[in-house]
Computed example of a mutant assay.
Amino acid sequence: MGEELKLFGVWGSPFSRRIEIALKIKGVEYEYLEEDIFHNKSALLLKYNPVHKKIPVLVHNGKPIAESQVILEYIDETWNDNPILPRDPYKRAMARFWAKFIDEKCVPAIWKSLTSVGPEKEKANEEACELLSTLEGELKGKKFFGGETVGFVDIVASFIGHWVGAVQEAAGFDFLTEDKFPVLYKWAEEFKNCPVIKENLPPRDKILAFFKAQLEMLTSFYKNRV
């Protein structure tokens, strides 16, 4: 078809990895461009995403699409093979609902729980556990959120499936364990071991080293503030 497809991302970002996973599931060829999002954003990134100036950005034949869930839906509508969203309207709406719940509720709460210090930590932990219990309830009786195969919600939940393990080790705080969340824990193992997922997740030791450095900086900031 002579299509030009470029993805601007960051190696350790669960948000840009979502897009890579979806493109690999679809069997679509693309060019990946690594961004230095913290210190030196490229002129192209700023051109293609002037509103948020963030990754991921997918550029299809010169037309940019930003925001990971928006990009995932665009990919699913553009390339019909191996659908990641249900075709049934109600199931499709429910997938969008749970994906939004993960991004707007679960991810911020988990991050806050793992990075909080002092008296805030216990409250943050309780809130995150409550949200994960709700998410686990949705998963009961299913192999994946998408049923028997990885779908839209599973891809959005990849932060929980892969990143949380490394971040909690870096923080020295067990959060998502088999004892606390057996259904989510089993899902995470199944998810990470799917060939297309396994091949497109960043190495755990690299994530661990990155977040250890980030958490040390955060701890130092709290210790030294007036």
Rank of each mutant, 00 (worst) to 15 (best):
I55E: 02
S133E: 15
V57M: 07
Y30Q: 08
E127C: 06
I207N: 03
G27E: 05
T177G: 04
T219P: 00
E148K: 12
E3S: 14
R92C: 10
E122N: 14
P182Y: 10
E3I: 07
L135D: 02
K142H: 14
R204V: 07
K212Y: 02
E136A: 12
R96L: 09
F15D: 01
E73D: 12
E190T: 10
G141C: 04
S42Y: 05
E169C: 04
E130D: 10
E136K: 09
L176F: 10
K47F: 12
L218S: 12
P14I: 03
G151N: 07
R87G: 08
K47N: 12
I155L: 00
E126I: 13
V59S: 02
L23I: 09
A124V: 01
M217C: 09
I19L: 10
P56H: 06
E130V: 01
L132T: 00
K212D: 03
A171G: 07
A93E: 11
G9F: 01
V183A: 09
S158H: 06
I19S: 02
Y48V: 03
G161N: 00
Y30M: 06
C129W: 10
R87I: 04
P50R: 12
V164I: 11
E136F: 11
G151H: 07
K53Q: 15
F97V: 08
A209D: 14
A66Y: 05
R225P: 02
E77K: 09
G62P: 08
T219N: 15
S133M: 13
K53C: 06
G147Q: 10
I25F: 15
S220I: 01
P56L: 08
F144Y: 15
Y32F: 14
S220L: 07
M1Y: 11
F97E: 03
W98A: 03
S42G: 10
E216T: 13
I110N: 02
Y32G: 03
P182W: 09
P64K: 10
I25L: 15
Y222W: 10
W11L: 05
P64G: 09
H39L: 14
K112V: 04
M217F: 13
F191D: 01
E20W: 03
I84R: 04
A99K: 06
Y74L: 10
